[in-house]
Design a protein around this nucleic acid. Structure first.
Lengths: 367, 367
DNA sequence: TTTGTCTAATTGTATAGACAAATATACAAA
DNA sequence: TTTGTATATTTGTCTATACAATTAGACAAA
C-alpha cells in the first residue's frame, strides 16, 4: 500500500515522497510519463485534488513537468531548472599576494563544469569569515574553498563547523588547520623553504638571515624548512639573523625590520624572505643603504609574484603552483558536492625554485 | 468588483494579481495580516479552494506567509525567505590590471548590505561573457556589474540584452558602450589623458610620444586626451610618435613596440603610456638600451598599479579611483535591484596625477 | 503539400463541504 | 508564580464533482 490513511503524515505528502522514491530508484526515469492523475487516484484511493497537490509540489521543486493533454513527465537532472551549485571561496584579500591567481584557478575550473563562484574577502579576520559563511549558507552554496584566516585555529575550526553542520563540504586551501576534519590542498612550504635555503647553502652561503611573519602556518613551515636546510649543512643560525613578527604584513613595519637587519651586514651574506613582498622591501632597503644585490647579499623570495620586470634586480624566488592550487581545490570540492564521501584528501603541490639574478655564489675567502 | 467571472484569465490568477497590487500599493503593508480565507471568499465570491490557490502561489513566491490560527501575513522584502540578491561581476581577468581592486571595492560594498558577489572572468571575450551571463541568469542574480569585453560594442550590447530581457539591471563599469541603455560608472579617461600630457607639456615637453592599444575605448579616450593636450599647446604630434596596436596587451609585442619607439630617441623627450604595464615595458626597454628615465626621457603611465617600490624608477602615473569605481558600481546596481527606475545614471570619477620620479623638466635649450 | 476540423485524453480551473491541527488567549488550578 | 485546560479561530488536509482549455493525432478538404 502506498498510502497509510492513519499516518499523521499528510497523504499528499506520502504520495509526494513515494513519487520521489520512484524517480530516485529509476522506476520513473527522466522523460517518462508518470501515471495520469486519474490513474494515480485509482492506485492510491485518493481524490484527484490530493494527487494534484502532491504533483504540484514536485513540479514546483522542478522534478516534474506537466503537459496538457499529454500527462506529467519526469525531468532529467539537466532540465531541472534546479540551478547548478554555487561554490564559495573565502580568501584573505583578492587584491594581494596569490589571491588573484588562486581565485582565477578556482573560477576556471568551476566554469568548466558550469559552476559559479562567490567571492569573499576575509582580510584574515575570523569575524569577517563568519559573516561571509552565514551569507554563503543563505545562498545554499554546494561547497566552500576556505583559506583559513590568521586567527587561532580554533576559531577557524568553528567556521568549518558551521558549514559541516549543514552538510556543506569544505576544502582548506593553502594553510592547514590542526585537527581539521576536511580536505586540504596546499603547497609544501616546509620543502619549499628548505629548497630555497639549500640553494643558498649550495652556493657557499652559511650565514643566512631570514625575515618573515610567524602569524601564518605557511610561513612558519617555511621557517622550519630554513632551519632544516641549515641543520643539514651543520650550521646553527645565529638568533639575531632570524627576524620575525607575528603581525600581518605591513610595508612600513617590514621596511623597518629590513633596515634593522641590513645594518648587521656584513654579518651575513644571504637573506631568505618569507614571501616576495618582504623580499622587495629588503631589496628597496638595500638599494637605499648602498648594499648591492646580489654582489653583497643574495636574496631569495617566495611566491613568484608577477611583477613587471623593470625591478632593479629580478628576484630569485620559490614559485608556488597557485593557479593549480585553485584548480585542485575546486576539483576536490566538486567531488564532494557530487557525493564523494571517501577519506579526507590531503593534496600537497610542489613548489620550485626560479633562479633569476638576486642570488650570487659567495666569493671564496669570505665566510 | 475584484473578480471578473467572464474573463478568460483564471479567477485565482485575478485574485493573486489583485493581492499583489494591494501589497505593492501599500494597502497591505509588510507585517499586515491580509483578510482570512473565509473573508476573501466573502469579498470575492470565490470558493475557499480558489482563494487558497491564489494565496499559495504568493506564499511560494515569498510574498506572503501563513500562520496557523493567526492568518496570512505580508512579508517585508527583508523577511522574504527569498535570499538576498546575488550580484554578478563580469571582469576581464581577476589577476590583471585593476580587476582585483575593482572586485574588492564591489565586494566590500556588497558585504555592507549582505549581498554576495559572483565572480566571472571574461578574458575580454564576448563568448565567455555570454556563457557566464547564462550562468548568472540561472542563478537568478539580482543585478550585474559588467566591464564590457574587447569585442565590438554590438556583441556586448547583445549580452546586455540577455540580462535586460529578464529584468536584470546591469551597470557598466569602466568602459562605456555606444547606444547602451543602462547605467555607467567610469573614470574620465579623456580628462586623465589630457592631464597626464598637460603635465609633460607644462615641463617643457612638446615632442611627446604615446604608446597604447586602441582596442579598448578607455585607452582610445586617453589617446584623445593626449591629442587635446598637445593641441592646446599648439603642437601637432608627429605620426611616428603615435604607436598603437589593436591587439590586447602582450608583454612581448609591447616590448617590441617600445624598442622600436625608443630607437627614435632623441626625436622625442617624453612618453605617455596607455597604462602602467606598458610604461613598465618602456622602462625596461629604456634600461636595456641605455636610455635614462627621466634624465633622457620622461615617462607617464596610467592606472597606478600597486607595485613594490623596488622598481628602478618610481613611476609618475595617473591614479584611477578603481576601488571607488567598484563601490559606486555596486551601489548603483543595488539601487536598481531595490526598484529604482529613474533615468540612466552616468557616474564619472576623476583620476589624479601622482607625481613620482619618472618625469623631469626638459632642459632649456633642447626641444 | 498545406490547411482546416474533429476527437479523445489530459491537465487546468472551480465549487461546496468536512474535519484535522495548531495556537493565542483567557481562565482555572496548583 | 507557574502550570494546565478549554475555546475559538485560522490554516491544513481531503473528498467528490463538474466543466474548461489545450493539444496530439487522425482525417478531410483545399
Amino acid at each position: 500500500m502506498i498510502i497509510d490513511k492513519n499516518s499523521p503524515v499528510p497523504q499528499y505528502f506520502q504520495l509526494q515522497t513515494w513519487l520521489m522514491e520512484q524517480i530516485d530508484q529509476g522506476v520513473f526515469k527522466p522523460g517518462d510519463r508518470i501515471p495520469t492523475e486519474e490513474e494515480l487516484s485509482g492506485i492510491t484511493g485518493l481524490a484527484r485534488a490530493t494527487i494534484r497537490q502532491a504533483v504540484q509540489n514536485l513540479v514546483n521543486m522542478g522534478h516534474l513537468e506537466r503537459k496538457r493533454r499529454l500527462g506529467t513527465f519526469v525531468l532529467s537532472r539537466e532540465q531541472t531548472r534546479d540551478q547548478r551549485p554555487l561554490i564559495g571561496i573565502l580568501i584573505p584579500d583578492i587584491r594581494s599576494g596569490y589571491a588573484p591567481e588562486l581565485a582565477r584557478g578556482a573560477q576556471d575550473e568551476a566554469a568548466r563544469s558550469q559552476y559559479s563562484l562567490i567571492l569573499c574577502n576575509t582580510d584574515d579576520l575570523a569575524i569577517k569569515a563568519a559573516h561571509h559563511a552565514d551569507r554563503l549558507i543563505e545562498h545554499r552554496v554546494g561547497g566552500v574553498i576556505f583559506v583559513p584566516t590568521a586567527a587561532p585555529d580554533q576559531q577557524n575550526i568553528r567556521i568549518l563547523e558551521t558549514f559541516r553542520q549543514r552538510g556543506i563540504p569544505v576544502v582548506l586551501a593553502d594553510r592547514p588547520l590542526a585537527d581539521a576534519e576536511c580536505d586540504l590542498v596546499t603547497t609544501d612550504n616546509f620543502e619549499g623553504g628548505r629548497t630555497a635555503v639549500r640553494h643558498l647553502v649550495s652556493l657557499g652561503h652559511t650565514r643566512v638571515a631570514v625575515i618573515l611573519s610567524t602569524l601564518y602556518s605557511s610561513e612558519r613551515a617555511r621557517l622550519a624548512g630554513f632551519h632544516a636546510a641549515l641543520a643539514e649543512a651543520g650550521v646553527t643560525p645565529s638568533p639575531e639573523l632570524i627576524v620575525t613578527t607575528d603581525d600581518p604584513f605591513s610595508e612600513k613595519k617590514c621596511e623597518q625590520q629590513a633596515r634593522a637587519l641590513l645594518k648587521r651586514y656584513p654579518g651575513f651574506s644571504a637573506v631568505f624572505a618569507g614571501h616576495d613582498r618582504i623580499a622587495y622591501q629588503v631589496m628597496a632597503a638595500a638599494d637605499d643603504m648602498g648594499i648591492r644585490i646580489p654582489a653583497d647579499i643574495s636574496l631569495v623570495g617566495y611566491d613568484d609574484l608577477n611583477i613587471p620586470h623593470s625591478v632593479s634586480v629580478p628576484l630569485t624566488t620559490m614559485h608556488q603552483p597557485i593557479y593549480e592550487m585553485g584548480v585542485e581545490s575546486m576539483k576536490q570540492v566538486m567531488r564532494r558536492v557530487h557525493g564523494d564521501t571517501g577519506e579526507w584528501v590531503e593534496r600537497v603541490l610542489t613548489s620550485r625554485l626560479v633562479e633569476r639574478s638576486s642570488v650570487a655564489e659567495l666569493r671564496p675567502g669570505r665566510r
